[in-house]
Design a protein around this nucleic acid. Sequence first.
DNA 1: AAGGATTTGTTCGTATGTATC
DNA 2: GGATACATACGAACAAATCCT
Lengths: 249, 249
Amino acid sequence: MQTSPDEAIERRSGVALWRQIADRIRLGIAEGLADDAGRLPTEMALAGRFGVNRHTVRTAIQALVQEGVLRSEQGRGTFVEGPRRLSYPIRARTRFSAGLAGQARERRGHLLSHAYEPAPPQAAEALGLAPETAILRLETVSQADGRPVSRATSYFPAARFAGLEKHFADTGSITAALAALGVPDYVRATTRISARHADSADLAHLKLSPGAIVLITFAVNADSAGIPIQYSLTRFAADRVELQVDGEG
Amino acid sequence: MQTSPDEAIERRSGVALWRQIADRIRLGIAEGLADDAGRLPTEMALAGRFGVNRHTVRTAIQALVQEGVLRSEQGRGTFVEGPRRLSYPIRARTRFSAGLAGQARERRGHLLSHAYEPAPPQAAEALGLAPETAILRLETVSQADGRPVSRATSYFPAARFAGLEKHFADTGSITAALAALGVPDYVRATTRISARHADSADLAHLKLSPGAIVLITFAVNADSAGIPIQYSLTRFAADRVELQVDGEG
DNA sequence: AAGGATTTGTTCGTATGTATC
DNA sequence: GGATACATACGAACAAATCCT
């Protein structure tokens, strides 16, 4: 028998207890925290489980209600409200739209801004270009059923892909824009995955609640000849998406 | 010219500013935040960049010094200290030890505890077993050069893998333990990746500083006949590891 | 070698946010 | 809800170590 609570929460961590508990509830929903009717355990039960005061649990629940994840009904309980988490596949042939087929009806990318400028060091290295070579930078947001899912900064060699931003703005698809410029196919070379807290740009573009976590991917795509054509930094809303890696492509 | 800071930080988010800044600095190091001599921008410069008081930056830096990531010298500056981030590959044939070859000299898994018990719902489903079927659960920690990298909860069908914990305790390797029980080879079927804040168990086993973020992977491994043999939930210290997905496996 | 500029380290005080009871 | 304790963040000033001219 344990006297301490089952799922301990960390104090003096720089992360408020209510924020930690909100994170855990949000993740826990995917793992069956709510019952079949979508009802969460009572506030008292959650307070006991996390070893905190009921007020603290209430603050966490209020934050999730604000996000649209939960809905509280006086006298009845707290219920899961929001859509479930999307599963974003990462494979050799990662495509945003194709990947979410069957999980969302409408998905599309939006162009926030673009610029032709000298390549920053990491981009130049990833693309195999000399430092300062001109590149095209695109800032985009991808949505599924009108809900922002990810935000990306992409770098393309400017010499080869001048005008790409127009094709993207028209079609909302990197795949289609590349095809229009003579790249009918491409493959994901490598993806590096890490995580951090959302910054204010993430909050604004992804419509996140403050304190949310974003999954970060650094990816390189190459054409059929193996020449790198795109380097991208993508931030996924960790509470709305999980990344899925399939075994044998 | 901008009057607002370049990289805005979010207030009233439930995540302390110093914690957000510590996260950003840690990530920024990989992206060339420090100069060639490993020296960070001055406290004043960072404070300006993030739009906060110098004290707040100092608190963030102190947290990273405590973690071993940075080192401060009065009158000289603040320098990058810790070992660089490990890159953990995820492919069809993901192996802990093999994957980190060349990045760390010594790596090994340690058995924290084990139990034979009824399968929890997610584990039963992932392994294709009837609910409540007996499984073997292993709690393990993996280290590279004595530094904890990840902590895993693994489920194996008890009928097939009775005694696996002894082989693992002896060898420190799941691959070797499975081989001893007649599974010479296995492949990663799927991996789902998400992220959350570290809980106190993560902090203790991974020796993390409070408030750290962990990358979570849910993985299923199958034998050469495609039969699921292992379901595992692994927590990676997001500030010490990045996950790497290679294109054509 | 001297002195000024730079950079980190320390100490006040004050206001606000967080969590408990 | 109100009172209390502690953590977080800011501001101003000064001290100590180092660097540069």
